[in-house]
Amino acid sequence: MNISIDVKELDQQTTMTLAGEIDAYTAPQLRETAFPYTEKKQASVVIDLSGVTYMDSTGLGVFVGLFKSLNANDGTLKLVGLSDRLKRLFDITGLADIMNINSEAEGGV
């Protein structure tokens, strides 16, 4: 039960690459790492989930929290590289309709 979080900042855009499992044990770590980037004005945060092997509802809660925080600061959130299983999770919860979600990983920079 581990997660790795790699953060790259370029101008206004923050790209986070996650790998591992997002559950009740690792979610607090993700929240603490990612939250500060969502609190800047008009931040653009891209999160690459292609290395995520498991995510439960606690993990989903973190993304909703990030989404809300970015919205409150006129920022944007984009999730990329979702596996079918993750895609289903966002579909079921209705989040796919309000969040920017893409199954493909981001090409280039």
């Binding site: 909703v64 809300k68 919860t93 209705g94 309709d97």
Partner: peptide
């Protein structure tokens, strides 16, 4: 279909 409670 429907959104989680507490988001919007």
């Amino acid at each position: 279909k429907g959104l989680l409670l507490g988001v919007d």
